[in-house]
Amino acid sequence: MKVHLKVWRQSGPNVKGRLVDYTADQVSPDMSFLEMLDSVNETLIAKGDDPIAFDSDCREGICGTCGVMVDGRPHGPDSCTTVCQLHMRRYKDGDTIVIEPWHAKAFPLIKDLVVDRSAFDEIIQAGGYTSVNTGGAADANAILIPKTAADEAMDSAQCIGCGACVAVCKNAAAALFTSAKVTHLSLLPQGQMEAAARVVAMVDAMDTAGFGGCSNEGECEAVCPKGITLKNIATMNREYRKAMFANR
């Protein structure tokens, strides 16, 4: 089948970008969305044109490297699916697809569909860890953790840091991303020691990095490819209030 594309092209951060039309011929339904883009690039490269820059690595939905707006929705139409796992059987012959980068102040554009998401690293750096050095850890079974707590922590820890939550949010807030880490660690005994300092530092880092404030719209939950829920944001807010109260 054949699909028509309107792709955001912008050669660098300080130049104007625009949507450019391309056609992908010979698209097979078994192709992934990114393989369809590969095929467009193959044609461009062979002609000596600059291919469309987009990011990807694992192509199986776990590294969080890929991520573009497909018809206005991060990662495209399928729920709980990264764009690298989206397949062309979702489309029909003659469809037109608009592909744009994440737009957010904290994610400056590098080129075409590629943005800089290092602001997420800054949030983790502010406190998204337990302060234990290598060596000297107690036997792993010395810490008992109820299965339900471990499972819930895992639900939050699954975040792949792709940035879809920020991209869809009208405030470009990073609350879902940050809260997933806060929740993961707050559910476990290992994370208790630093819980108060962690949540405060991470929320501050979020503001410093230029992310907007969360106004509980909930779009982030709807587009998260890993199904991270709004409950995480509620947990973060609760942890934050607790920390503020303790500090008074």
């Binding site: 290598t134 060596g135 850890a137 107690a138 008992l144 290992q190």
Partner: peptide, 22 residues
């Protein structure tokens, strides 16, 4: 064996049994 201890101390959410053990 030390690796598992280290990872648990970091908060890696390994799968658990109902009794809370790994």
């Amino acid at each position: 064996a030390n690796i598992i201890d280290q990872c648990v101390a970091q908060g890696v959410p390994f799968a658990r049994e109902y009794g809370g053990q790994l």
